[in-house]
Design a protein around this nucleic acid. Structure first.
Lengths: 192, 192
DNA sequence: TTCTTTCTTTACCTGAAGGTACAAAATTTG
DNA sequence: CAAATTTTGTACCTTCAGGTAAAGAAAGAA
């Protein structure tokens, strides 16, 4: 009932995710959103309420697409080491690729809003936790199949892998070259 | 000649560093600076020219104090492993301590301005490079003295240590607990 | 067809970001 | 002392962030 929306809210949230990912939260203005989402300011605020609410939707979308994709990749069956390698390579290529060193939205949000925006901080914290969990499961699997030495604490290794991944994406934003990023990935895999 | 300044510019830059460190670049307003630096807006702009110029001074100060302190710590003589351990522990305590999870100004700047502000990006890139160099030198030293296995590539290990350190500080901003941060540090040291 | 509901457009609003202008104040030089 | 120079405080300015209001448009309900 009532006039139907002239845009697809899901698609708009996806575009908003891209904008926030590229520019950050504070640096994204309502005008940026109007320009890049292709809908009027009225519709924007009518549909989403506020810039912050839209940002939360975008961050949830990031979790459900990007972060989830990484977890799914790690959960695949088969030898674990190639999985880890392709995960890290995927991120390196993403960071160096077309879309231009925007890094990771969760990481960017952690440093921009961490401790100052509870909802966003909590979303990011859980994404980190989930990713770490996937790493831990992968390491445990690798130990069971004899692929990795069984004497390392999987939780500790997983924490290190998460930190290395996060650090890699920050370094990518600071103009870190491919060699440097690959060195991080190689060293991380070599320690297993 | 002329009227003398009523404040110490160096001290003001130090305070500005704290403010930017705590709030980030965009989220720091001229009014915040006036309030927290204790000087008038006229003096502020007269002495430093612009918010951005002051930020660059603050970032250089960060490099010359915080980043330099880490490098100096790593360059100390004696067994390398305890040095690395105390470096990581120092950062963990800093991140969890009084000043409140502000993380690392270089990391925060990388994710906020990386690729969008050339001067800042370059400053951060060089800080990362310098820190990685200090890690590499430490690892090489540890290998020469037989403290570490000699078969690992020091550059690769150093890259991983830098990434882990950076990642740790991001995770700290996302409410990562002490256990998690210590797990990262332990795992990083265990791989040597 | 009119009523109701929801969406869209356009106009508008308030506050503050980021900075400039200028006169007054404090110093050194002649 | 007057002149020249630099700093300071206050007032002011322009733009835009972030959002609201109101009127019209497009649908279904009665």
């Amino acid at each position: 009932m009532g006039r139907p929306k002239q845009f697809d809210p899901d698609a708009v949230v996806g575009k908003a995710m891209d904008v926030f990912w590229r520019k950050g939260y504070a640096a994204t203005t309502p005008q940026d959103l109007v320009d890049e989402l292709g809908i009027g300011k009225g519709s924007l605020y009518h549909a989403f309420g506020s810039k912050h609410a839209l940002f939360e939707r975008a961050l949830e979308r990031y979790r459900d697409t990007q972060a989830a994709a990484l977890v799914e990749l790690l959960d695949q069956p088969g030898p674990v080491l190639p999985l880890l390698r392709s995960a890290l390579e995927l991120l390196i290529e993403t960071d160096l690729g077309e879309s231009g060193r925007r890094g990771c939205l969760a990481v960017n949000t952690a440093t921009e809003l961490g401790g100052r925006d509870d909802a966003s901080t909590e979303l990011v914290r859980r994404m980190f936790e989930r990713t770490e969990g996937a790493f831990k499961a992968a390491v445990e699997r690798g130990q069971r199949t004899g692929e990795f030495a069984p004497d390392r604490d999987p939780a500790a290794v997983a924490s290190l892998l998460l930190a290395a991944l996060v650090g890699m994406r920050v370094i990518a934003r600071a103009q870190g070259g491919r060699e440097r990023l690959c060195r991080v990935a190689d060293a991380a895999l070599a320690m297993l």
